[in-house]
Every structure is written in structure tokens, then in C-alpha cells.
Design a protein around this nucleic acid. Structure first.
Lengths: 217, 217
DNA sequence: CCAAAAGTGTTTTTCATACACCCATGT
DNA sequence: ACATGGGTGTATGAAAAACACTTTTGG
């Protein structure tokens, strides 16, 4: 009855990277061709990810791959969930330790994998139509859900903005991600009361009063 | 530069099982002797866990091992975190997908692993002194933290109680786990208003008014 | 007869929400 | 002069927290 054989499997990390710009959440996707055999071998969209090397932690694996694919500047990285369905990759059993990362969006940063035909930032509401690699679509969905939940009770939104930002920027970010509007005054009040931001200076605004610039403390 | 070799590793599940009884949270621990070579080979305490078999999901692996070790009757199982430090097991790189489980405490249920010298329910505040296997102590701590957090905004406490319980039982469970007292009236009010419980019947109490018995709906 | 287990409502406080006007400037 | 970006305080309502007394019976 007792099975003494200990099996070994591939273990990868996959990272959902979030960037924010112009009232849109963006994620980078890569067009790859690693679908399973015996299926129509069309190209499919995938997250950035890589098998874990023998001496690296999964976080290190994420950072390594993000440097390769995106050019780094990640500001936040958190483990999301481990996806482990026995059939998620039909070629060989593969475990995916999924992470999500927050970064300041910079268009220039996308490098692209060596084996990717295309690498692109997609706004969340205009994801590509084509097929997805493995369960990457589900991973993305869970990451979005987690990000929304996290935003409401932990101050992670800052990591998607430049180091210096206005309260209007921050408000807009929250409204975009959570898909609903907040009262400006209540929002400013709460953020200021949180003690998490520090006033830096005023800059002339396009209209009216000067804009107050803060940084995350 | 590009490393085409894909390494394979052991992937296990480890489960922190919670039971509740007499104003105490309990977890089962197993005394095992699988410490790494070249270290003093004293026995150490470990969670219940097992390598994942080729065709089973991690949840199935949990259930299989829980049946073997504890005699089942798990009522709730949730993925906690994947522990993946390259040196967490010095014999071979091993990934642990950790889960936590809630069950109704039954003293008789502990069976014990084949290779375990001892298997015991420990109250959380009287954990054994001896060394712990791998990072199982940290896993336990994270599970406790998660359970406390979860309890506050999702109705998981029921899964630690018998199917029929009084509000006093439930209150006491919350006070025990969260380590603080709640106002009885406010607590009853909120639980009743939640619509999650259903009144079954009254039973004579030891003193005073009869006790109202509910079940989780 | 009193300590213990169990039941039940009201008031207060706190927090979230809703809401309206002023200022400066580019067009 | 008006539309736009930007700034500010108060009033209301809902939810959480605080709080006290009654019933019954075993010892």
C-alpha cells in the first residue's frame, strides 16, 4: 500500500505584472508557442514565467524573469496562489507558483522573451482574443480579484504610481481599478489621515490652485 | 546564458489542521525522524503532509493524507501559501504547498502516521518544546494568522463546531481564537442578522432559560 | 438564597457617506 | 465668461460599541 517512490515535477513561477497609465490597468502578455502536443498548435498568450532554478527562491525566480522580460523596476511582489491541477500542462506535470507584481508603468520597459514572438502591454479591458497558455487566464483573473481586495484595506496603490504623485492621481487609480467612483473629499481626507503619505511641494496646476505633490512614506 | 535544462523537484502538501474543544484550539502534530543528514538527528515535530502523487491535485493529496492520519471529517480546506526556500529541506529541494483545514475536534480521530512515533493533539498555547521539522513552525504561525484574519470577515468558525451548537459556543470559539472578548448581545445580534444560522430547537439548560440550538445553514 | 447560565433592547459613539462652494487660468 | 482642474468642511445616517436587567435552577 505504501508508495515509497517520490515523484519529481517541474515547478515554475508565473507573474501577473500590473502597470497603470491614463486611467487604465495594463498587464504585459507574451505571444508564445508552447502549447501542448496533439492540440492545434496556434500561438497563445501567456504571462511571464520561468522554471525555478535549483538554488533560487521563487521570488528570486520572479525577479530574474522580470528583469529579462520587462526590465525590472518592480515595486511590490506577492505570492498569489499555487496552481497545481495535474492536467494544467499536458506535456508534463508542472506546478505554477503564481505571483502578482506592481510597478510604475513605463512603455519602454517591455523587452520580450527570447522565445516570444510578441510582447505587449494590454489594458485589462482590451485583452487579446486569442487562446491563452495553460491556465494563465485564470491566474490573471485571480490576480485582478486579489488586487481589488487588497487595495481596499492595504496601501498598495502607491506602487503603481510614480514616486511623486498628486491625490487626484491616486484617486483616479483607485476609481479605475475598483470600477467605481469615490467622493473626492472623503478620499483625500482618509488618505491624509492615514499618515502614509508625505507632502513634498506644490506645483502650478493647469487651472486654479496649485497641485500638491506627495510621496509615499 | 540560456539554461534549457528544466529541473524537477519534490512537491508536497503540508496541512495545519485546527480543532476546537473546551476553549482551546488544537492542532495535531506528529513526532517524526526525518531530519536532514549531518544534523543532530533528534526527533522533531511535524505537520501532516505527503508528496503529491502524479495524478492527484494538492487538495486530493491533503484529503488522502488526512484520511490516513486523522480519520477524515475535514469540513474546510484552503490553500495557505507555498513554502519554497531552496534550503528548507537540505536532503533535496522540496516545495511545500501548505493548506489549513478546519474540523470538529474528536479525540478518537487521531490515527498517526506509519512512520510516526507519536501523534497528538496539542493546544496552541502548549505546543511541544522539541525541535520542529523543516519550516513547519513557520507554516503553523502563518496558518494561525490566516485563521484569525479569516474569522473576522468570513464565516468559517462554524466548521470547528459540532453541526448543532449554541450561540454561547460560537461566541466562546471566537473569543478563544481571537484572544479577546466580545459583547454577548452584539455578537448574538450580528450572527442572527447574518442569516447564516438556522434555529433548530431549545434544550433545557443547566441554569435559567433553555439553550437555543442552531445549525449552520 | 445566591451563583451561574442563559435570554433580551436601547443608547452612544464612531465611521462612512453625501453634499456645495471657492479659486485661478487657458481658451 | 466659462469650462476645467484643483482646493476645502459639515451634516447625516448606518453600523459598531457600550451598557443592565430578568429568568431559572443546582448547590
Amino acid at each position: 500500500m505504501k508508495n515509497t517512490k517520490i515523484n519529481r515535477y517541474v515547478v515554475s513561477v508565473d507573474v501577473v505584472v500590473f502597470g497603470y497609465r491614463d486611467r487604465q490597468l495594463y498587464i504585459p502578455l507574451f505571444l508564445r508557442n508552447d502549447r501542448v502536443p496533439n492540440e492545434p498548435s496556434s500561438e497563445c498568450w501567456s504571462l511571464t514565467g520561468a522554471p525555478i532554478q535549483p538554488q533560487e527562491s521563487p521570488e528570486e525566480a520572479c525577479m530574474r524573469k522580470l528583469e529579462e522580460d520587462i526590465g525590472l523596476s518592480i515595486r511590490y511582489l506577492e505570492q498569489l496562489h499555487t496552481f497545481a491541477d495535474p492536467n494544467r500542462d499536458l506535456r508534463q506535470r508542472t506546478f505554477s507558483i503564481a505571483y502578482y507584481a506592481l510597478m510604475e508603468f513605463k512603455l519602454k520597459t517591455l523587452i520580450g522573451e527570447e522565445n516570444a514572438k510578441s510582447a505587449e502591454w494590454f489594458p485589462l479591458n482590451k485583452l487579446p482574443k486569442g487562446p491563452w497558455a495553460f491556465d494563465h487566464r485564470r491566474i490573471l483573473e485571480m490576480a485582478v480579484t486579489r488586487l481589488k481586495g487588497k487595495l481596499l484595506y492595504e496601501p498598495v496603490g502607491f506602487h503603481l504610481l510614480p514616486h511623486e504623485f498628486s491625490l487626484a492621481d491616486l484617486l483616479c487609480l483607485y476609481e479605475t481599478i475598483l470600477g467605481r467612483n469615490f467622493d473626492r473629499r472623503n478620499f483625500y481626507k482618509k488618505v491624509k489621515a492615514s499618515g502614509l503619505i508625505q507632502f513634498i511641494r506644490e506645483v502650478p496646476s493647469r487651472r486654479g490652485y496649485p497641485t500638491q505633490i506627495f510621496k509615499f512614506d
